[in-house]
Nucleic acid binder design. Structure first.
Lengths: 224, 224
DNA sequence: TTGACAGACTTACAACGTAAGTTTATCATA
DNA sequence: TATGATAAACTTACGTTGTAAGTCTGTCAA
């Protein structure tokens, strides 16, 4: 009975503000305009609210960043099928890479977060559990985890780096490079840039899986 | 003749300000107090100068960060002996890891820099050249480079993450973890933390070389 | 009807990077 | 020795950031 009376006060943003809504808006703002454009005022604007109102639902900006990371990590697929450890690891690594590709700011943020939310903890536990149950010792499991995730995050950041000029043609990049750099001092770098300009398609996933295969094969060899 | 008269005006900071001196001070400030404490005013303070005076020698703060990265990269040892590619790669990777350990902020900064200084370009060229001359195709060389450096940077960032609580004993960390986290929900994570609390020594280099060996061995296999 | 309270709002501040303009020290030339 | 150009320091000021502090308002139980 009391509900319908105060409907439609304002056409927009009448669903109540919640921590969840704040975090989701923060993620999409960062996705669209980059992490630098994520300011409290801008985020408030997007939610139809003043910046300070956000503090009723989150502790501070760090809390927002933590929450965003947990959302991102929760998007990583952790296979629950009874597949072997190698396939499971491959799937979650590929999934992580694609998640970081969707949220480019996340790979650059992951280390600055000291506190982990539930999704991140579950992720840790799943990876370690999969490795331990595959027969890896505690020490090797720890190191394998470190190796895999160092690669995943590091790869994400390198892509981030390259995609700065991502909206121009490869040929243009090469030309720009040759103009800016004394190419004869760096013959191999020159070769690489010019060649990459020639080859039309750069396949990010294939690049990632190249390294992933080497790592997984190497780990497998340790089990014998 | 005119020189000695105006000596000893002020006891400190009478050597002239230069870009070199600014960058070096910035590196040591970041080393000592963390990258967040690197502000123009703080940096000026350390050099006995107002913040705005720095702009006579650097373009802006981004320019400083670029310059800092180039200093750091120049500290990475690139073996010039005629050793085989694998040994050369191993040495430079280990050197890079120790450099990033000395300058923890650097691994977190490397991707935000879009423009590369001469040291970084030389580094690129050396790595690519070493791989190409070892017989790797252009494509594999590019991917091997990406794999190695993703790992190196990613590893550095994970260490950064862990060292936040680096000044407390492992037992304390474990205890703190068990208090903060519902450990029975995360049995493998629990196992790992508690076990790491038991084992006294955590050897960062050994951890790094574990992954490095897997990567180098895997690359070697591609040459046959 | 009231009065408590959650959740919005406004105001204000310190710290940041840096644009703009001003002062001062150095040094070649008259 | 005097002058005047130039480099490099300085002061001031502005817009943007996160957020502390305090105020207003709409909802709902008593």
């Amino acid at each position: 009975m009391p509900v319908p009376t105060n409907r439609a006060q304002s056409p927009k943003s009448r669903e109540p503000l919640t921590r969840e809504r704040v975090l989701r808006a923060a993620v999409s703002l960062a996705d669209e305009n980059g992490i630098d454009s994520l300011t409290m005022r801008e985020l408030g604007l997007r939610l139809g609210v003043e910046a300070m109102s956000l503090y009723n639902h989150v502790a501070n900006k760090d809390d927002i960043l933590d929450g965003m990371m947990d959302i991102v990590v929760s998007e990583i697929d952790l296979p629950s099928d009874p597949v072997d450890w190698k396939e499971a690891m491959r799937r979650r690594a590929v999934s992580a890479q694609s998640v970081f590709s969707r949220h480019p700011w996340a790979s650059g943020l992951i280390d600055s977060r000291e506190s982990s939310g539930p999704a991140r903890l579950h992720y840790f536990d799943w990876v370690l559990g999969t490795l331990r149950q595959a027969g890896f010792t505690l020490e090797v499991a720890a190191r394998a985890f470190s190796l895999l995730d160092s690669y995943i995050y590091g790869f994400g950041r390198q892509q981030l780096n390259m995609s700065v000029d991502g909206d121009m043609k490869p040929e243009e990049i090469a030309e720009l490079f040759l103009k800016a750099i004394p190419a004869d001092e760096y013959p191999f770098l020159r070769e690489m840039v010019v060649d990459y300009a020639m080859t039309a398609g750069y396949d990010e996933s294939a690049d990632f899986e190249f390294g992933l295969n080497i790592i997984l094969d190497g780990l497998e060899r340790l089990l014998d």
